[in-house]
Amino acid sequence: MIHEQESIVIKTVARLLVPFIQLFALYVIMHGHSSPGGGFQGGVILAASFILLSIAYGLDEVKRRFSIKALTVLTSAGVFLYAGTGVLCLLLGENFLDYGVLPVVEPRGMGMLAIEIGVGITVMAAMVSIFHDLLDFE
């Protein structure tokens, strides 16, 4: 179990850094199909921001803001979004995960973006949830 840090330096730096880390994580996920990056990398960066918060402010504070139930739901929601994109392509009359038929501009890029977002959500929620489960175990 991690408790709140005494040091004001650690707490202030963590508080200042977390928004930038999360913004960068979202950039890595959203830009994954046109520059280096993607769901796995962005999800892990996003999870790192929550883990940094847990180390600086204690597990209970993070749990109060981002409940562990929501994390569990998000873990499966990401896989659901991924597989759902595939099934949507199937319903529109193409093969599973063949994004060409999606009714948007640049359907292949948007399909990839959708599954990258799914991967990012799952990886983020899984990392944070594993971190919490391991540290809560006494």
Partner: peptide
Amino acid sequence: EVPNMVTAVLAD
């Protein structure tokens, strides 16, 4: 239609 070849292979 995606410039990143790595993502094209991984995600498509």
